[in-house]
Nucleic acid binder design. Structure first.
Lengths: 247, 247
DNA sequence: GTGGCGATCAGAACATCGTTCGTGACAGGT
DNA sequence: ACCTGTCACGAACGATGTTCTGATCGCCAC
C-alpha cells in the first residue's frame, strides 16, 4: 500500500546536525534532471515546469539557481561537449581523424535530441568546448594545415555537424522517427521525382536514384569528406606524402 | 476627429455588383501579410494572432485557408525560393557559379530573418525549389561532376547555407544585431582567448587572430569554397582544363 | 425574387509555455 | 531568543497554436 520511497521522515525523527529537511535543489541537480528529460523525451518535452515537476517543486524555484531557460541549455551543452572524445594527433591520418571526429560528434549530439539547435546560438566557450577545439586544431596543425585555414575550419566543421544533427531532430519532430519511417518518406520523394515531367526537369528526372539514395550517415560522411578534401587542397605537399586529392 | 481610413462605407452607398464588403481573406493574402511581418520584425514576431490582427480578424479565421502554422511557413518558404536567381551553366566557371549561388541564397534567406529554420525541416519539393535544384544540378553536370556526387552535393550545400543563415538569425535574436554589435562580441571573444593559460591551450592561444578574424560573409564563402574544392577533387580531369585543386 | 445551403468568418476557450510577484519558512549570526 | 537574509514555491501574467461553436454572408436553384 504505502510506497517505500515516498513517505516523509517521521516528525519525531529529526535529522541531527540540522540537515535540511527540504530537498537541497542545486544547479547541478537541475541540470541532471533536465538531461534526463531531454534524453528520454526530446527537447520539446523539456520545459521549466517539467523539470520542476520532476523535482517535486514549483517552476519558480528553479530561477534561484538558473537565470533562465537559455542558461540551463548552455549548461547542458557544455556538459554534453564533455562527452566528446578527442583524437590524439597523427600527422599521417589527419583527414580520417577529422572525418571520424565529425561522425562521433554527430552521434553525441543526436543522442541528446534537439539540443543541437541551442548549441548553434553561441560560440562555444565553456571549458569542455575549449578542450575540444584545442584538440581539433592540434590535429589540423599536425597535418600541416596553415593556421588561417585551420581556425575557420573548425568553425565551419562544427556548424555543419550541428546543422545535420539539428536537421535530424526536426525530421524526428515531424514524425519521421524510426529508420522505417525515414525510408518510407524517402520512397515517397522518389516516386514524386519520378512523376515529374521530364521535359521541364530533365536533370532531376534522369538522376532520381542519385538524389534519394543513401541514409543519413552516408550523407553526413560525404559532407565531412567534402570539407576535409577541400581543406586538403590548401595544404602544401609534404615530401613523401600522398594526400590523394586529385582523384 | 474621425480617421479617414477607418470609417466604414455608408450603408446607403452599397457597392454595386455585390463586391464583398468583408475583406476576402485568401491564402495568398495571408502569406502576403505573414511575409510583411517576418521581414519587418523577424520570425519571433510572426504568430497566427499577429497575422490575424494585421488582417483585422480573429486567429481562427486563418485556419479556413491554412492548415496550421507549419503549412503557412512552407508556403512562405516556397515563395522565398522563388526569389533565388538561377545561374546559366558555364562549364568553365562551374566552381565560381556554385559559390556565388550559395552566397546569393544566403543573402536571400537572411533577408527574411529566421525562416531558414523552417526550411531545414523538410526536403524542399515546391515548384520553385524544384526549379532551383534543377538549375544547380545542371551547373554541376556541365562541370563534369558525376551524378552520384552531384545529387548529394546540392543537399549538403543547401544544408550548409541554411545553417549559416539560421545561425545568423540566432545571433541576431541574442541581441547581436548590427555589424557593430558583432564586432564587439568578437572582440570580447578575442580578449577571452588571449586570457587563457597558454600551458593548457597552446594551440588556441597561439592562433587567436586566425580564429576570430573575418566577418560572416568571409566565413560563409570559405565554407562554400571548401565544399566546392572538395567536390572538384572527385571530378575527373578534362583535357585542357586546369581546376587548380592542388595547392 | 426568394429560400436555403455551404463556405467563410470570428469570439471564446483550452492547454500549454517562460517568467515574475509576493509570501512563507527556515538557518545562522548576534 | 530574536532578527535577518536567503531560499522555496503557489499563484498569476501575458503569450502561444489550435479547436469548438455559432453567426453571417454570397451564390445558386427554384
Amino acid at each position: 500500500m504505502t510506497e517505500a520511497t515516498e513517505i516523509p521522515p517521521p516528525p519525531w525523527r529529526r535529522p541531527k546536525k540540522s540537515t535540511r529537511q527540504r530537498r537541497p535543489l542545486s544547479q547541478e541537480l537541475i541540470v541532471d534532471t533536465a538531461m534526463r528529460i531531454l534524453d528520454a523525451e526530446g527537447l520539446d518535452a523539456l520545459s521549466m515546469r517539467r523539470v520542476a515537476l520532476e523535482l517535486q517543486t514549483g517552476p519558480a524555484s528553479l530561477y534561484a539557481h538558473v537565470a533562465n531557460k537559455d542558461e540551463l541549455l548552455e549548461l547542458m551543452i557544455d556538459r554534453i561537449t564533455g562527452e566528446l572524445d578527442v583524437p590524439v594527433p597523427d600527422p599521417d591520418r589527419w583527414q580520417e581523424q577529422i572525418v571520424e571526429a565529425g561522425m562521433e560528434a554527430h552521434r553525441v549530439w543526436t543522442r541528446h535530441p534537439g539540443i543541437a539547435r541551442a548549441a548553434l546560438a553561441n560560440i562555444p566557450l565553456g571549458p569542455n568546448s575549449l578542450r575540444y577545439s584545442e584538440a581539433l586544431l592540434s590535429v589540423l596543425r599536425a597535418g600541416g594545415v596553415p593556421d588561417e585555414r585551420a581556425g575557420w575550419f573548425v568553425d565551419r566543421l562544427s556548424l555543419y555537424v550541428l546543422a545535420d544533427a539539428f536537421e535530424d531532430s526536426l525530421h524526428h519532430e515531424r514524425g519521421r522517427r524510426t529508420e522505417e519511417d525515414a525510408r518510407e518518406y524517402f520512397e515517397q520523394v522518389r516516386t514524386y521525382f519520378h512523376s515529374l515531367p521530364p521535359g521541364r526537369f530533365p536533370v532531376i528526372t534522369s538522376m532520381v536514384d542519385a538524389l534519394v539514395g543513401g541514409d543519413g550517415d552516408e550523407r553526413l560522411r560525404y559532407g565531412l569528406e567534402l570539407l576535409v578534401r577541400g581543406l586538403a587542397s590548401y595544404v602544401p605537399d609534404r615530401p613523401g606524402t600522398s594526400t590523394g586529392q586529385a582523384g
